[in-house]
């Protein structure tokens, strides 16, 4: 990785790999994203989620100095986002766009040689070999990119993004079109890059991928809807729920659950099934178990019901859709 990850021109130091403050971008009347603020630390894997047209790619392009913001400010890899700092910022970052954008008539190596030159790699041969090795493509180095499958092209694009030894790596749908094995390889590569201190800004529609890989996620829908660790987002949006299943339905569920500390409410979930809303599952779960046993119930199972990141995402996006539609 490039040295001095926290040094900026002028000797200023920054602790965040990305610091975005009230950033907005409009194309004429059309707002791509508005008033977006967040920070991403060095070595963090940050998921950036949102529906199509939410402004994710435009945000990446803005932070990558491909387009200018309409308002707001940002610091990228320790460098303030200004037009005159474009080259310095692009020296410290890499962007892998959703479409690989390879020169199809050139071989894999020739594509990478071009980009090693653009990054002014001091040892291009070594960098190319390392990048090809990282994405398991060394045996296809001499193949024209036009002859590669979509998944292999995606891996070439990923290798290309690694050539510049970036401090911040923007990955736009990096596993799109990859088979499960290749996707797992990419996940492992992301983990490895994180361990090397590379900041990963991951745009993805695969919510299970974001949940598995990301330290924190942000959900964008023109404005930033939520940001935090996936667990925190779940806690913010959904009440914690304990699900219990008994052999026979309880004769008086209110009497069983009503007196348990930490239980906020309950509802039946099928025959002998109960979904119990709790404020703290670590306190409530043992108490509910005891209450069920004391009531003479035959308990088949009891456990915490976890909402997925997908539930969080859909809840937020549905809320936005309802707001846009309006009441009634």
């Amino acid at each position: 990785m490039n040295p001095d990850p926290s040094s900026a021109p002028g000797g200023k130091t920054n602790t965040a790999a990305l610091a975005v403050e009230h950033l907005s971008k409009s194309f004429g009347e059309r707002v791509a994203f508005r008033d977006v603020s967040f920070e991403v630390g060095y070595g963090e894997v940050f998921g950036f989620l949102g529906p199509n047209g939410a402004g994710k790619t435009t945000t990446v392009r803005t932070l990558g100095t491909l387009i200018g913001p309409t308002s707001g400010s940002a610091t990228v890899a320790g460098v303030p986002l200004t037009p005159e700092n474009g080259v310095e910022i692009r020296r410290r970052i890499a962007i892998m766009p959703e479409l690989p954008g390879l020169y199809l008539r050139l071989t894999v190596t020739e594509n990478l040689e071009c980009f090693a030159g653009l990054y002014e790699s001091p040892d291009p041969r070594e960098r190319i070999d390392a990048a090809l090795g990282a994405v398991n493509l060394a045996d296809r180095a001499g193949d024209p990119c036009g002859a590669l499958s979509k998944g292999l092209r995606q891996r070439v694009a990923l290798a290309r993004a690694l050539l510049g030894d970036p401090q911040v790596l923007f990955l736009d749908e990096p596993t799109s079109g990859l088979d499960p094995v290749a996707a797992r390889d990419v996940h492992e590569l992301i983990d490895e890059l994180r361990q090397r201190g590379v900041t990963i800004f991951l745009t993805t529609h695969r919510l299970e991928e974001a949940e598995r890989l990301c330290d924190r996620v942000a959900i964008l829908n023109t404005t930033l809807r939520m940001i935090g660790r996936p667990d925190d987002l779940r806690d913010q949006l959904f009440a914690k729920t304990i699900t219990a299943r008994t052999l026979k339905p309880l004769p008086d569920p209110d009497g069983v659950f009503g007196g348990v500390a930490g239980v906020d409410g309950w509802h039946a979930d099928g025959s002998g099934g109960y979904a119990i809303a709790v404020s703290d599952s670590t306190v409530a779960a043992p108490a509910i178990t005891r209450a069920l046993v004391d009531a003479g119930a035959d308990v088949l199972s009891i456990g915490e019901s976890r909402h997925s990141l997908e539930d969080v995402y859909l809840e937020l996006i549905d809320e936005d859709a309802e707001l846009q539609t309006g009441p009634g």
């Binding site: 491909l66 692009r90 970052i93 690989p100 954008g101 020169y103 199809l104 990054y119 510049g164």
Partner: peptide, 14 residues
């Protein structure tokens, strides 16, 4: 048209 311009412009090239 090939979609290769964006990757090139994300490098430090002026």
């Amino acid at each position: 048209q090939q979609g290769t311009l964006e990757p090139v412009l994300t490098t430090p090239i002026r």
